[in-house]
Design a protein around this nucleic acid. Structure first.
Lengths: 333, 333
DNA sequence: CTGAAAGCGCTTACAG
DNA sequence: CTGAAAGCGCTTACAG
């Protein structure tokens, strides 16, 4: 089954390849009506489909962007990506999504693969483990946008939640309704992950602002696998917390599992509030109070920023964009 | 920032482009040690990265496959895709995933786009709305595998759940523990979606096998937006069902929302069992009894089948592969 | 052991 | 208004 090429169409329509190419690219300015018609028919008859690969090689642009996400398991990631997809779709760009699985080695492999595939730009939820590589891309002016995490060493525009506001929102709400023994738990790997750091710091700041003494035994970060035992330890201490802020969706799920297993009543035994929305927040028992991120605005900004960089090489934006979280009051605290 | 090409490397290493290409493709058979070394160094110094686009054009293969999923919102889809990804990754194939959003027009656009991008094969969770297009691909021997839905008009290998067994498992279990007024509800769009049809038919068959009269008012399919009102109607009839099988994860969620809103106690007021796992099944209150699909085996089979077709043009497999579901007994019935 | 040359399927000045 | 020719960055017989 030989592939139909532009040459076949040209021969069939008795014109040159150039003319067919013009036609395909809608440069009809000076093209005769009958010529157009003949080409149209030939394409139809032969079932010709242009080979984008060949075009990309010549044009040195693929109309494709890559997304590398540190961990696709977070609802936040999938929601942001969904929006990026929509925007790209409407701008006639294609998307290749890769999951680095929190592994800098994988991330590196994907960056190299996507660049070899000549994507026009990259949106990265960075693992943070490839500073040198990020730096190289910045130097070579390769269009790049970060989401969710800031990498201090390189100047790349970054789309971020206002983590300070998120923690203040959660803390203030708990204090307002009468809690004082408030804990914060989040999962995290070893590297310096921006959201974790910012959230821990902001939490302490928010407590102090409300004149509550910071109790370090109420603040824990741990790998996801160990969250259960960390919770066990935290809650079985002398004077345990009676309210818990979960740092993200996956941590929140661990907290819920724990409560379920120990038959803790939420919110009576333990009040719970989570950052990020989970799909079942509104129909869980009890309905879950959460702090949600404006994922669609964030995805939109990331996509538009990258497309702008691709279209305009001069664009040197390296701003950090902060987005405001929302408190969704339900019944878990 | 000019791109480094193979010609630059060749010049820098004082060899021909051919030799560099041989080196890159690890055909060292007759290559001198010093030549190899020089090339290695030049690549390093210049920071050369091969352009896969150019290679693909020449080799007429991109080592990339496309996945078009009818509806990415089903947990089933994302789980299957995850496995496909893993297999491809380990076979050094790349993946482009597209969501047709149950829209045949979108599906068509994606098929054309992916073929224009010269993917080596396609795994489709078909909307069913592009029979002619599917047929064309079959005729031109383009590697193709279907998942979740059978399209009768074309012979394409298809990866399917054993829906009959799934419904039998659910029905028998409910009957065994004492339920007789069993309902089945599933969402579905207008086209003839295999899982819905098979599940409805198998449900009736399973009831008959247990000597239970089929009550048509207990069997409903509806668009997701209307599930709430359909449930309302079904449950407010004279002699309402007291057990409900949800046809998939999204429908199950609607049932749970409904129960929550009406303050129905599960399972006392209404027993619930769902096909497909939902992320929160094990820590919902009550824990949810489900019938789960072996998504990772199914994804694995789909990927291996497609890769086999890509490697071996002769492969004309058009079998339908059925996979066995599992009953996960928990507390919702 | 290595190089010159053709070609993958397009696009794009440029000439006429 | 249309065509001949060069070129995008690779690979691959083939010659030596």
């Amino acid at each position: 089954m030989k592939n139909i090429t532009i040459a076949d169409v040209a021969k069939h329509a008795s014109v040159s390849k150039s003319t067919v190419s013009q036609y395909l690219n809608k440069r009809y300015d000076y093209m005769g009506e009958k010529t157009k018609e003949r080409i149209r028919e030939s394409i139809e008859e032969l079932g010709y489909q242009p080979n984008i690969i060949a075009r990309s090689l010549k044009q040195k642009s693929t109309s494709t962007i890559g997304v590398i996400v540190a961990n696709i398991l977070h609802a936040f990631s999938t929601q942001v990506i969904r929006t990026i997809e929509d925007i790209c779709h409407q701008e006639d760009f294609h998307l290749i999504v890769c999951n680095a699985d929190n592994d800098p080695e994988k991330e590196k492999k994907y960056i190299e693969m996507l660049r070899a595939k000549q994507v026009d730009g990259l949106i990265i939820f960075p693992t943070g483990g490839n500073v040198d590589l990020y730096q190289k891309m910045v130097v070579s002016k390769f269009p790049l946008v970060f989401v969710d995490r800031i990498v201090n060493e390189v100047s790349v525009p970054s789309i971020m939640l206002d983590n300070e506001m998120a923690m203040k929102l959660a803390t203030d709400y708990l204090v307002d309704i009468g809690y004082e023994r408030i804990a914060f738990i989040t999962n995290s790997i070893h590297r310096n992950i921006t959201p974790r750091i910012e959230r821990v710091n902001s939490f302490q700041k928010a407590l102090v602002a409300r004149n509550i003494t910071v109790n370090q035994s109420y603040i824990k970060t741990s790998e996801l696998e160990n969250v259960q035992s960390v919770l066990e330890e935290m809650l079985s201490q002398q004077n345990p917390p009676n309210a818990m802020i979960a740092g993200n969706d996956l941590t929140l799920i661990e907290v819920l599992k724990y409560a379920k297993e120990r038959q803790l009543n939420i919110p009576d035994d333990l009040a719970v509030i989570g950052i990020d929305d989970v799909s079942f927040a509104s129909f869980y028992t009890p309905e879950l109070t959460t702090i949600s991120q404006p994922t669609s605005e964030m995805g939109r900004k990331a996509a538009l920023l990258l497309l702008e960089k691709i279209k305009n090489e001069q664009s040197v934006c390296d701003e950090i964009f902060r987005f405001e979280p929302t408190l969704n009051i339900r019944n878990s605290c």
